[in-house]
């Protein structure tokens, strides 16, 4: 059993330390980290290189037990796990149905053309997170509903705050995306390499 202490280390260091230990021949490892991004990255690494991963919450962090299994190794995925801000790992958060503060008409036009541009982009976020007035983008704003649908069809997950839909009486008017909650939305923010807030 090899012990890797990556406490206090941020991406990509925990993954690199773990990879080194495995390259040196370790088949059973205990890795200790203190941030959820490292947990997600290590789980992806384990999956890519044919290891099983069990995660345990410990005081001040997480303990991962990695054990070699006999599954195939995916070289491409192994490389991907050390790139911290790789595409697909970012999220967009909209807490309002406009961009910025100032004139509402302008802000509303800007958010429509933002989602138009995003839907045509090659580098898509993994998640779009909608809260407060942002839920209107997926329920009553026809222009943004269309763009969000295009994004969803391209594989982007749209998570919509259910509390907010209820608050505004829009629960039965959701047109695109999945009703979600603070734990899921917060969880996606923690996993994402970056969160772009509108």
């Amino acid at each position: 059993m090899v012990f890797v202490d990556a406490t206090g280390k941020v991406c990509p260091i925990p993954v690199i330390m773990t990879k080194k230990a495995i390259e040196a021949g370790a088949t059973e490892l205990t890795v200790v980290v203190d941030n959820p991004t490292a947990v997600e990255n290590l789980k992806r690494l384990a999956n890519a290189i044919g290891f099983d991963a069990a995660v345990e919450d410990i005081s001040g962090g997480f303990r991962l037990s990695l054990t070699k299994n006999n599954k195939n190794v995916d070289e491409a995925a192994t490389t991907a796990t050390t790139s911290c801000a790789s595409s697909g790992s970012w999220a967009v958060f909209a807490g309002q149905d406009v961009i910025g503060s100032g004139d509402r008409e302008l802000g509303s036009s800007l958010i429509k053309i933002f989602f138009y541009a995003l839907s045509e982009s090659d580098d898509l976020p993994s998640h779009i997170l909608l809260m407060n007035d942002g839920v209107k983008l997926a329920s009553v704003n026809n222009a943004t509903i269309e763009h969000l649908q295009t994004l969803k069809d391209k594989g982007v997950s749209v998570l919509v705050c259910g509390t907010c839909l209820n608050f505004y009486g829009l629960a039965d008017q959701l047109k695109v995306g999945m009703v979600s909650n603070m734990y899921d939305i917060f969880g996606q923010m923690q996993i994402a390499a970056k969160v772009v807030s509108l």
């Binding site: 008409e105 302008l106 036009s109 429509k112 053309i113 138009y116 541009a117 222009a143 269309e146």
Partner: peptide
Amino acid sequence: SSHDAIRADKLLRDILPVTLMP
């Protein structure tokens, strides 16, 4: 001007299928 663009969107969007874009 963006004022013209925003006014046009408001006037036309109920009549024609128009989409605001950059």
